[in-house]
């Protein structure tokens, strides 16, 4: 491969006591691609993502994110953006204030913050809500804003953990337009989801089951390999936990 690497994972293992959440994961994410991370609930997606973001340490294996080894999580944190599964912005602050806070934390000046904030909110057609407290926003808008915060400081890689769960189809569509737009500007997008139609939007996907990677390729290649009509069908075929199979 001569493509530049955004994330390299080799034999990543994460154990909690005797439970193995991630079992020898090995994969690469290329710069600028939309990389989908699929799996049933409890398959180990969030655990892996938290390790990539420096929120958790691997038990063993080698992880490099944005060219930095996972032994130096604080340096990784400077170069990534993260949107948690759980909504985690300050509900008692306004849209502007949340963006200001995170911009400031990533070392932007007030001038830069104002400028970029205006630009970003315009792009997300959010301008009418600048002075609104988050607690007054509907869920769809909150998720969009959480995304905005995650990419506000223009990170090299943005991690999205089930960004569209609980969101209506129209907003989901808009959300993916935002993701495309972001990726087109060169940002690498690492996204977990359990909506199979969303998997079709990704450049490449991996499917996890019981802590292991069971498939990794572009959606079309995977469909061909397994002879299925959709990713959903493929997922049901290969990602079902073994103990419920028989």
């Amino acid at each position: 491969m001569d493509r530049e690497m955004a994330i390299e994972v080799r034999d990543l293992v994460k154990r909690f006591g005797s439970f193995t959440a991630n079992d020898r994961l090995t994969f690469d994410v290329y710069k600028g691609e939309i990389f989908g991370f699929l799996g049933a609930n409890g398959a180990g997606k969030t655990t892996a993502m938290r390790i990539l973001c420096g929120l958790s340490r691997p038990t063993s294996g080698r992880v490099t994110v944005a060219g930095i080894d996972s032994g130096n999580p604080e340096a990784i944190k400077r170069r990534i953006g993260y949107m948690s599964q759980r909504f985690s912005l300050y509900e008692d602050l306004t849209v502007n204030e949340n963006l200001e806070l995170y911009g400031g934390i990533y070392g932007m000046t007030m001038k830069e913050i104002r400028q970029r904030r205006e630009e970003l909110l315009q792009r997300l057609s959010f301008t009418g809500y600048c002075e609104t407290l988050i607690q007054a926003l509907p869920l769809g808008l909150r998720q969009k804003l959480a995304f905005a915060v995650a990419v506000f400081h223009e990170p090299e890689i943005v991690f999205l953990d089930e960004p569209t769960s609980g969101v209506d189809p129209v907003t989901r569509r808009q959300f993916w337009e935002m993701i495309y737009e972001t990726a087109s500007r060169g940002m690498t997008v690492f996204v977990t989801t359990h909506y199979m139609d969303e998997a079709e939007y990704c450049d490449r996907i991996t499917i996890m089951s019981e802590g292991r990677i069971v498939a990794l390729d572009s959606p079309s290649a995977l469909r061909e390999q397994h002879g299925t009509a959709s990713v959903e069908e493929l997922f049901v075929k290969i990602a079902r936990p073994k103990n419920t199979n028989s």
Binding site: G54, K77, I80, R86, E91, Y102, Y106, V149
Partner: peptide
């Protein structure tokens, strides 16, 4: 508890 700390923890603060 509300999860806002997670978002802060993933920043270089």
């Amino acid at each position: 508890e509300t999860g806002t700390l997670e978002q802060i923890n993933v920043t270089p603060v």
